[in-house]
């Protein structure tokens, strides 16, 4: 019989336990994995482990307990080179779930990791922060728009990456939109539009503005706004373009321009865009989902 060294068995056992905990998303297990000591490396080269906290004036305090007693070290932020938090396996698993686009399962992990680190965001490397950019989207999917806004706004000052900043900006807009905060949403969307190039890969701001206008019965404004990304879109995929098409079709219909609505619907299908899930616009899909009339719907007639 093969004899394994006891240390090996402990490692295997711990690994299995971790796997069960992580994949089973047990809250207590997650908390356990994240609750270990934090390692701090200073620019002077010292490495210490302990319990980390932040004072009100922005200093870092590392509390180290030993049999002999307790020591508290206080650092200026600029003295810190790096901080290493426990729970790397959770970070890996969260990353996997995000790549699999499984934000529902990723959410509790991300929430816990974010809670562990949110006080120390200025000290976390940007590459490590990128993990959290999925958290607002996960919150939005879970119907927690206020959390999405809060996390996005916390993260934004610490990120330089343009793509990720865009993603967080979008989460802030969508959060406000979900909360029904019309005026704020409208202002945010306008600011989003102001920052975008003509040929963008997203039509979020246009869609939001058009949707708000449509909801208020301002069909003309909704039409013009939603047409903007349609005009300046090509074959390169654009997020929310399908929603803009649906709004433009619905607005054209309300403006009694059914020929235009048919033309846009046909074009939407030609471009391989599906009708979006949107309660407000669902009736219009039924209206236009039919074979085109060879006379009235032919733009080259």
């Amino acid at each position: 019989m093969i004899k394994f060294p006891s240390k090996f068995l402990v490692v295997v056992f711990t690994f299995c336990l971790l796997k069960i905990t992580v994949f089973g998303q047990d809250e207590k297990g997650i908390a356990t994995l994240l609750s270990g000591p934090v390692s701090v490396t200073t620019k002077a080269g010292a490495s210490l482990q302990g319990s980390l906290s932040r004072t009100e004036d922005g200093l870092l305090q590392l509390q180290i307990k030993s049999e002999d007693g307790e020591a508290i070290f206080t650092y200026q932020p600029e003295e810190i080179r790096a901080i290493f938090f426990p729970g790397g396996i959770l970070v890996n698993r969260a990353g996997e779930l995000i790549r699999e686009d499984n934000l529902t399962e990723a959410l509790p992990l991300l929430e816990a990791i974010y809670e562990q680190r949110s006080n120390f965001l200025p000290f976390v490397a940007e590459s490590d922060l990128l993990l959290f950019t999925a958290l607002p989207s996960a919150y939005l999917d879970a119907g927690k728009p206020a959390n999405a806004i809060a996390v996005s706004r916390n993260l934004l000052p610490h990120l330089q990456n343009f793509r990720q900043r865009e993603r967080l900006d979008e989460a802030v807009i969508l959060g406000h939109f979900s909360l029904g905060l019309r005026e704020e949403t409208k202002n945010l969307a306008a600011s989003w539009i102001g920052k975008r190039d003509l040929y963008s890969d997203s039509a979020l701001g246009w869609w939001i503005q058009a949707h708000l206008d449509f909801g208020k019965g301002n069909y003309r404004e909704a039409l013009w706004t939603s047409l903007h990304p349609i005009v300046f879109s090509g074959q390169i995929p654009m997020k929310y373009l399908d929603s803009c098409y649906a709004l433009a079709i619905a607005a054209s219909h309300e403006l009694k321009n059914e020929v235009k609505a048919h033309l846009l619907y046909t074009e939407m299908q030609t471009r391989g865009l599906d009708w979006p899930e949107d309660e407000l616009l669902a009736p219009y899909r039924i209206l236009y989902n039919r074979s085109p009339d060879p006379i009235t719907d032919n733009p080259n007639k």
Binding site: D197, L198, Y199, S233, G234, Q235, I236, P299, N300
Partner: peptide, 22 residues
Amino acid sequence: SRYAEATRCYRLVPPKNVLIKK
């Protein structure tokens, strides 16, 4: 004067800066 088809073709043309980037 085949405008609808011309429009569809033009949709395959991105602006120069986008094209260079891509």
